[in-house]
């Protein structure tokens, strides 16, 4: 199993709880906005600590509250692609891409800067600043930044939702290629049925 998740966490007066197992490939967490899907991703990334439960990815235990285990986010090797790109505004595109790459251990790296730039078609953007990028360009750079950090799995939080239809189709193709060519386990959060049907090998409904 790629993902074995069973977490719950109280946020304010609601409880976010989610349990599922998913095989290799792209798994979609599918449900309406506000169902707590992002909180689940944050718990898997280590950014939010669950009150109870376990997170296991590709056989490795990342969180096991009962056993007192909680690997910090920087050691989980999660490639997290956020809804809004979340590029560092004070760094050029090149330095954004290099940020995670420099921190990854050399033996963990599986993609070079050149490969990532070709794969995503962002060679012309390297010297630009994030605030000058369009939504689609920013999302490509964000994907490249995550891939270059040598992740073992990818977390994608509605990566298409801030894009217009044309950019959406473009990034959709990129995600399909990541799924088919890179063979990384991917957890993909979305509220869009058509998107999920097209991309997912496994669908986990969240209510």
């Amino acid at each position: 199993m790629s993902f074995e998740i069973d977490v719950s966490r109280r946020l304010g007066d609601r409880i976010i709880a989610c349990a599922f197992q998913a095989p290799a490939g792209l798994t979609a967490l599918f449900g309406p906005s506000g169902a707590g899907k992002t909180s689940v991703l944050n718990m898997i990334a280590g950014l939010l600590k669950p009150d109870t439960g376990t997170v296991r990815v590709a056989g490795e235990t990342l969180t096991d509250i009962a056993a007192g285990a909680d690997v910090p986010p920087e050691r989980r090797r999660a490639g997290y692609i956020f809804q809004d790109g979340r590029l560092f505004p004070h760094m050029s595109v090149r330095r954004n891409l290099r940020y995670g790459e420099k921190l990854a251990r050399p033996e963990h790296r599986w993609m070079t800067m050149g490969d990532a730039v070709d794969f995503l078609g962002i060679a012309s953007l390297l010297d630009r600043w994030p605030r000058t990028l369009s939504g689609g360009e920013a999302q490509r750079v964000a994907i490249g930044r995550a891939l270059l950090s040598a992740p073992r799995f990818l977390l994608m939080d509605e990566p298409l939702s801030s894009l217009d239809a044309a950019r959406r189709a473009e990034i959709l193709v990129v995600i399909e290629r990541i799924r088919d060519e890179l063979k990384l386990p991917i957890l993909y959060v979305s509220h869009d049925r058509a998107e999920v049907d097209r991309l997912a090998d496994t669908i986990v409904p969240i209510e």
């Binding site: 280590g46 950014l47 986010p73 989980r76 490639g79 997290y80 956020f82 979340r86 995670g100 921190l103």
Partner: peptide
């Protein structure tokens, strides 16, 4: 949230 992004990219709290 930018700090969170940095953490997932491999940066510890101090970095």
């Amino acid at each position: 949230r930018l700090e969170g992004a940095a953490r997932t990219l491999g940066a510890g709290p101090w970095r």
